[in-house]
Design a protein around this nucleic acid. Structure first.
Length: 112
DNA sequence: CTAATGACTCGAT
DNA sequence: AATCGAGCCATTA
């Protein structure tokens, strides 16, 4: 994985994820929609996979539309994601974020 | 070049 | 209401 030119899409995802405020979460589809492609939600998750080497990417703040921590198994430890979210004031139960709407961050609305 | 996979989402049955 | 399938873009083999 040396010098690999990444497409704009990935960097776009990184920027949006990095802009997520503390204590807020968003979904892959929302990020994809903000980028303009509604169907490339999978690519967002794939971008996160690539972003694994970027500690500045709070991937733990990115969950699926149900608020389920789908990618928690991809973290160094399965409890890392939940612990980080809880540390930000979020409540997690069964790998699912409680009060998701209360902590949901919409780039289209909040970021403008 | 074709095929398969991936941390998702929506629509149809 | 729950389950299944197809779509989307990019990377890897």
């Amino acid at each position: 994985m040396e010098k690999k030119l990444k497409p704009n899409f990935f960097e776009n995802v990184y920027e949006v994820v990095k802009l997520i405020p503390s204590g807020k979460v968003t979904s892959y589809g929302t990020i994809a929609a903000y980028l303009g492609s509604k169907g490339s939600a999978r690519m967002v998750g794939w971008a996160m996979n690539n972003a694994h080497g970027n500690p500045e990417i709070p991937a733990h703040r990115v969950v699926n539309q149900k608020g389920l921590l789908t990618g928690k198994f991809h973290f160094e430890e399965s409890n890392t994601m939940q612990t980080l979210l809880e540390s930000e004031g979020l409540m997690i139960e069964n790998n699912q974020i409680l009060n998701l709407e209360n902590h949901f961050w919409n780039p289209q609305t909040e970021l403008i």
